[in-house]
Computed example of a mutant assay.
Amino acid sequence: MAISETQLETWGKQGPTAQFTSTYDTVRAVLNDSSSPYYPKSFDIFLQGSYKNSTNVYGDSDVDIVIRLDSIFYTDLYFLNDEEKARYEANRAPGSYSLDEFKTSVVAWLIKKYGSDVKIGSKAVFIKGNGTRRDADVLVCAKLRRYYSYPQFGDPRYTDGICFFLPDGTRIENYPERHYDNCVQKHQDTRSWFKHTVRIFKNLRNTMIEKGQIKDGLAPSYFIEGLLYNVPAPKFGGTEQLNFKDVLEFLFQADRSKFECGNGQFYLLGNTNVTWPAANCAAFLEAVKKYNDAA
Rank of each mutant, 00 (worst) to 15 (best):
I224P: 07
D216I: 06
K195T: 15
M208C: 12
D168I: 07
K119I: 10
T104D: 13
R178Q: 09
P220Q: 05
F102I: 02
L218Q: 15
V106T: 02
L228F: 00
H196T: 00
I120F: 10
Y148N: 10
K211G: 12
S149E: 08
I111P: 02
Q213A: 06
N182F: 04
N243R: 04
T197F: 02
P232Y: 00
K202Y: 03
Q241V: 10
D100I: 03
V118Q: 00
D137E: 15
V107Y: 07
G217N: 12
E240P: 03
N230A: 14
E210T: 13
V125E: 03
I214D: 13
R157E: 12
P151S: 03
D137A: 10
T190C: 00
H196C: 04
I214S: 08
K119G: 08
E173N: 12
P232A: 04
K112N: 09
P167A: 02
V125N: 07
V184P: 10
D100T: 11
S192M: 08
K195H: 12
D137M: 08
D160A: 15
R178I: 11
R157K: 13
S105R: 08
I127H: 01
H179T: 06
N130I: 07
D137K: 13
N206Y: 02
Y222A: 01
V106S: 04
Y229H: 08
K215H: 08
D100S: 05
P234G: 07
R145T: 06
I120G: 11
H187K: 02
P234Q: 06
L110F: 13
E210D: 11
D168K: 01
V138S: 03
F223P: 03
K123V: 10
G217F: 14
V140Y: 07
A124P: 04
L227I: 02
Y114M: 11
F244Y: 14
K195I: 07
V198E: 04
D100Q: 09
I224Y: 08
T104N: 04
E240W: 10
N174L: 13
F153W: 13
Y150F: 15
P220F: 04
N174T: 09
L166M: 15
A124G: 04
